[in-house]
Amino acid sequence: MTEPLLEVKNLKTYFHSSAGQVRAVDGSSFYIHEGETLGLVGESGCGKSVSALSVMRLIPNPPGRIEDGEVIFEGRDLLQLTEAEMREVRGSKIGMIFQEPMTSLNPVLTIGRQLTETLELHLKMTKQIANRRAAELLDMVGIADPEQRLKDHPHQLSGGQRQRVMIAIAMSCNPKLLIADEATTALDVTIQAQILELMMQLTNELGTGLLIITHNLGVVARYADRVNVMYAGKIRETGPAIDLYRNPKHPYTVGLLNSVPRLDSRSGSRLIPIEGEIPDPANLPTGCAFRPRCQWAVDKCASEDPPLVEAAEGQMTACWEHENVTRTPTGALA
């Protein structure tokens, strides 16, 4: 197999506050190949955004700091680059789309200016060529009447249109990797479907690697080749999407799949929730952080945090009891 496009090794990103230290990402390793779509799922606060921001080196410092690890992208460790080199990577090699497009678009600049700025800076285009390219990009992301729209300011667009503009900007320099952090979470379902289909179509055509970050297990099921499941700062399970959904081996993955309402389950059927609450990140349980909510926990789980081990072919799980974990719990929930 060829070298991955992106390889994150043992990433640790911590935040320091008066409440104590938050290990937002605590020893996370993952990779993405060219043209591949990786899904990163987990509930709020588990460290999804911090993972992405660490790759982009956009962690606010203070209070945050990348404590350890490597982020190998196209053969170079991004954590070793100068800020100027990193700006170049962010502008032209890795594109990122965030949940709230209004905060990432500049409200006082026209859509056109925000597009041409990157094109002129990173691709050294002249104003005129950049303008023409900007209109093409808007057309590519499905915005009608692109020449006219270039003159608009962000507030003149709908939420879906703004997200399309964000995709146009992120894709403008033909990045090798696109990171979409809850990019469709704030959108209506029919618009969400439009945007996701658009993102998939563009990345497929251009062979772009795609990291889809979301808490929506359905979105990942529909689009991802492989999936990372995160809980309390760590990847707890990873594997090909089809295998992982068919045969989850980590109790948290099982819990998520049992608690999510499905469009195809009959009316009145009952969900099986995960008991308890998501732990306070500044005060994680000892051993495995999922232990207090886990129906399979044994004594060892309180003292030793299990490493990721191969639980099935291509599927890695961080659970001491993974051999006993099954999707349909047998009497364990009595």
């Binding site: 618009i191 439009q194 289909e197 359905g218 499905r262 469009l263 195809d264």
Partner: peptide, 25 residues
Amino acid sequence: LLSAIPIPDPELDRRRDRIVLEGDI
């Protein structure tokens, strides 16, 4: 609306028809 909502089951979901609506509300 129904087709826009993915089912958290890749094998099943990837066999479903998808109707993607054009345009905004």
